[in-house]
Design a protein around this nucleic acid. Structure first.
Lengths: 211, 211
DNA sequence: GTCTATACGCTGATAGAC
DNA sequence: GTCTATCAGCGTATAGAC
């Protein structure tokens, strides 16, 4: 009996990319330890042994998941922060858009719980996550905020505090959206655009842009 | 040959409590799926089979970890928020102390990544976490903030936004402290008291208490 | 590059002695 | 209540045909 034909979607990406994308999804849903190579193979529509043709181990798959997207994400945020054709306060919502893309919507930031889960046994993941993602994002925003203050567009405010105010809200949102992913009212209670709007209010008030 | 004497510390708590406490610690460090019953037994200083005398399954241990402390934590926050002998602005740091205790220092909030990891297969955990912890904390703060505004002590500000400003910062801090637990400079970069102080600045500014 | 088949340790869980 | 001994099944990973 012939093997049933695969769905077209499985051929949209070369196998290694498809594995990484599928693995990312599964790690997000059930964690690293909770995702078996068998489950990954099945979700990819290939046999388990074929995984080992592309990646030498499960850890290698994890590393590959963290190799993707950091640089692009950081560069998108940098571009928004350096839009010198705009005033600082006009750049603020653009920067915020990139922060939410990076952390909540499509982003690397959603992997934070997986980093927490694996940091004990695979510390390299946490190191890369910190060096290539977190530190970069913080630095870009710090420069942006300080320049805005020096230009007199933003009221002076503690840069460290501002940093927490910027990243805390979307990180909390991502975690809630992950914890309550199965709740039917998720999109109501934790709507990205709504929270982003409220977050912008917060930042504008802290930077003295109100009124 | 005689079995080596146990350390005194293992006898400070009755066995079921010791199991729950040890399991909480292990779940925090290596996740639910990443923590085996053998590892738990060894960390408790008992045999694996003895675990099953006290808990009928691994899931039962997880539930027990989430049964502990929610009510007390919520009540401590409520007490702080309802200190009618103090002004609203004097209550604010006390409320913040309880929020940090609940989420960062000793708290139930540190289990959020475990909730995220298990919500797909064990949705009851996420439901309890939401109903008995998150929702309660939000409601207490919302009442506190609204009453403070109505009393004229706080400037009016969007309550939803304020909510994100309150919980985002400590949730982000907890997650960072979990991800970078092995970093030698953890206590420098992510010191609880420092962040709490910066967080208080943020809230005071949003509530119009500056100056 | 994908498959079938398999090695073998570890998993959650149980039986039954003490 | 704790132990030793054991189970079936699943975990990661490999061998070798096509």
């Amino acid at each position: 009996m012939a093997r049933p034909a695969r769905k077209d979607v499985e051929h949209l990406l070369p196998t290694p990319d498809r594995i990484v994308e599928t693995a990312t999804q599964l790690f997000l849903e059930t964690g690293y330890a909770g995702t078996s190579m068998s489950a990954l193979a099945k979700a990819c529509g290939i046999q388990k042994a074929s995984l080992y043709h592309h990646f030498e181990s499960k850890e290698a798959v994890l590393f590959a998941c963290f190799q993707t997207g950091f640089a692009e994400t950081v560069e998108r945020m940098r571009s928004a922060a350096e839009r010198t054709d705009l005033s600082f306060q006009d750049r603020l919502p653009l920067v915020l858009d990139e922060v939410y893309a990076a952390i909540v919507s499509s982003g690397a930031g959603r992997m934070a719980p997986v980093v927490a889960e694996t940091t004990g046994r695979i510390p390299e993941v946490a190191e890369r996550f910190n060096d290539e993602f977190i530190e970069e994002m913080h630095e870009i925003f710090e420069v942006f905020a300080r320049d805005g203050m020096e230009a007199g567009e933003f009221e002076p405010f503690d840069l460290g505090a501002l940093d927490h105010a910027l990243f805390g809200v979307p990180v909390n949102l991502t975690l809630c959206r992950s914890m309550f992913a199965k709740f039917p009212d998720l999109e109501e209670r934790y709507a990205v655009e709504t929270v982003k709007g409220q977050h912008l209010q917060i930042l504008r008030k802290l930077l003295g842009l109100q009124g």
